[in-house]
Amino acid sequence: MLHIKCPWCGWRDESEFGYGGEAHIERPKDPDSVSDAEWADYLFFGSNRRGDFRERWVHSAGCRRWFNAVRDTTTYEFKAFYRMGEEPPGGEQ
């Protein structure tokens, strides 16, 4: 049972949250201009990083807000929580 800090509501149990996978994957602005391969890459191919991983959560049983987190996928330790639209801490990954 992870302990997750919603940037609006504070610390809550994992059971209040939904998971949204990798963060900072932007939907192509003009989907027609991308190839099938690029579209597939957007849809299905993630980094699945081992170690610090930027990911999305949604406080679905609370404020219903989406937000981002950085979490080590080997220890599950959260390194940061930040709101949608905010720059991820630590720069380029």
Partner: peptide, 13 residues
Amino acid sequence: DKYNGYGQKGSIS
């Protein structure tokens, strides 16, 4: 479990 994790551990829930 709902989240990515390599730790061979999941959530008790």
